[in-house]
């Protein structure tokens, strides 16, 4: 399989992160680090303009993520998951199966859970993305996140962000949940460690606290 970092120019020149440190230290083969600005970014109207062709080369587009309008240089083949992780360094979203089968890459598109690995970043348009980084508010974890810690609902942790996204969405849309509801909400989320029973307990417990 190809490198998952599809599309060129992963950017970010912010403060030093673990990633940028590794990249700078030559442990990664990432190429140019490019500063992108809003100046040349297409606005949403242009991005969504019907009857237009985009790509195949990279172009700068805008995308609303966790309430912030970001600019990023991407190709049509760049998946939303890759855009979030490699271009915006929002690495909470995990790519595991990369085929829509495990839902580790779950984000919200206008509030609805979707697999970010199976969408082009050009599918997003003016819709708003929420990632796991956008779930905690003002530095305070969401009750579901608290409950995951309390009930030991993580093992290796790769499925956890996707699990949390599914469970938070369930609580956002249904205030009176039972075990079947949690099973249904997380049916797409695959946990190879088998921590599902703890996820169920945590979500049911969080539901009692939020209602």
């Amino acid at each position: 399989m190809e490198d998952k970092n599809q599309g060129s120019d992963p950017k970010k020149t912010k403060s030093i992160t673990r990633r940028s440190f590794l990249r700078g230290a030559g442990l990664s083969t990432a190429g140019s680090v490019l500063l992108t600005t809003n100046t040349f970014a297409l606005d949403y109207k242009e991005q969504l303009a019907a009857g237009k062709e985009f790509g195949p080369e990279a172009m700068t587009i805008k995308m609303k993520v966790n309430g912030i309008t970001e600019s990023l240089s991407v190709e049509p083949r760049t998946t939303l998951a890759s855009a979030l992780r490699d271009h915006l360094e929002l690495t909470g979203t995990k790519i595991v199966c990369d085929r829509g089968s495990c839902s580790a890459c779950t984000v919200y598109l206008d509030g609805k859970p979707v697999n970010s690995c199976m969408m082009s970043v050009f599918d997003v348009g003016d819709k708003e993305i929420t990632t796991i980084e956008g779930i905690a508010q003002n530095g305070k974890l969401h009750p579901v996140q608290e409950a995951f810690i309390e009930h030991d609902a993580t093992q290796c942790g790769y499925c956890t962000p996707g699990m949390v996204m599914s469970c938070v969405h369930l609580l956002d849309t249904n205030t009176d949940i039972n075990l079947e509801d949690v099973k249904k909400a997380t049916r797409g989320n695959l946990c190879r460690c088998g921590t599902h029973p703890h996820v169920f307990k945590a979500t049911l417990s969080a539901s009692k606290k939020t209602t």
Binding site: Q6, A50, G51, K52, E53, F54, E57, P76, T79, F122
Partner: peptide, 11 residues
């Protein structure tokens, strides 16, 4: 994925 261009269909 290979490089491809993207066309937004009007109709």
């Amino acid at each position: 994925m290979n490089k491809f261009s993207w066309y937004e269909a009007k109709s």
